[in-house]
């Protein structure tokens, strides 16, 4: 028996919106720790890791560890039946091939019961070691999203350079080139507007903007984004989900021949 209840149902809608453009199908791992997922995009270039800890739910019951294979697109379709202020309950029983979503309006005057078919998904699980990064940039998530969107209209790749001067995002395309530098700014009164750069070593890495822009679909989950970089390693772009966990994206860099 697996059952979870999330009062802030819109959170699940936003989480699914944040991953649906990157992965088609994924196994959701259910355990007493929480509800989690690790899935790669079809080209094995990017990965999303989601964690929603059990303590963050109003009610969380998971009698044994198991995985539920779901089509993210179908899940997004089912979640369209939920209003933003609905309370969401997800239920699954052992040995069944369906999952039930229940959406309750806050005043309890409307209850929707939705059943979705589960899938058998054969997926590779990657072992991601805890790593020390050469540079960690924390900045407003909306700022990061706007930079990626602006650079996407000029080029296909973004080079992220962290130095003493700050963090520079640059691109080059047929029509020209552009670079945007953000300096450390921790003096702001609002912590969500701060840009903080922790640098052990200068780094310079190039990534496909197509993927980075997809990651910014998680912007509504967190006011801040953390970008962790090391030379010749995948970047980690993390959006924390208050009280519950995180959505982390990993992207392999572009490398020279």
């Amino acid at each position: 028996m697996f059952e979870l209840r999330l009062v802030q149902g819109s959170l699940l809608k936003r989480v699914i919106d944040a991953i649906k453009d990157l992965v088609n199908d994924a196994n959701f791992d259910c355990s007493s720790t929480g509800f989690s997922l690790q899935a790669m995009d079809s080209s094995h270039v990017a990965l999303v890791a989601l964690l929603l800890r059990s303590e963050g739910f109003e009610h969380f019951r998971c009698d044994r560890t198991f995985s539920m294979g779901m089509s993210i697109a179908n899940m997004a379709k089912m979640l369209k039946c939920a209003s933003n202020d609905d309370i969401i309950t997800i239920k699954a029983d052992d040995g069944t091939d369906t999952v039930t979503f229940m959406f309750e309006s806050p005043s309890q005057d409307k209850i929707s019961d939705i059943e979705m078919k589960l899938m058998d998904i054969d997926s590779d699980h990657l072992g991601i070691p805890d790593a020390e990064y050469d540079a960690i940039v924390r900045m407003p998530s909306s700022e990061f999203s706007s930079i990626c969107s602006s650079l996407s209209s000029i080029g296909d790749t973004v080079t992220i350079t962290v130095s003493k001067q700050g963090v520079t995002f640059s691109t080059k395309g047929d029509i020209g080139s552009g670079n945007i530098t953000c300096r450390q700014n921790s003096s702001t009164e609002k912590p969500e507007e701060a840009t903080i750069i922790e640098m052990k070593e200068p780094v310079c890495l190039t990534f496909a903007l197509k993927y980075i822009t997809t990651f910014t679909k998680a912007t509504s989950l967190s006011s801040q984004v953390t970008i962790s970089l090391s030379s010749d390693m995948p970047v980690v772009v993390e959006y924390k989900i208050a009280e519950m966990g995180h959505v982390r994206y990993y992207l392999a860099p572009k490398i020279g021949e």
Binding site: M40, L47, D124, G127, P234, A252, E257
Partner: peptide
């Protein structure tokens, strides 16, 4: 030129 590396190049599959 530059080419796109894969995650499996850095992380092991289990």
């Amino acid at each position: 030129g530059i080419f796109q590396s894969r995650l499996t190049h850095y992380f092991r599959t289990h």
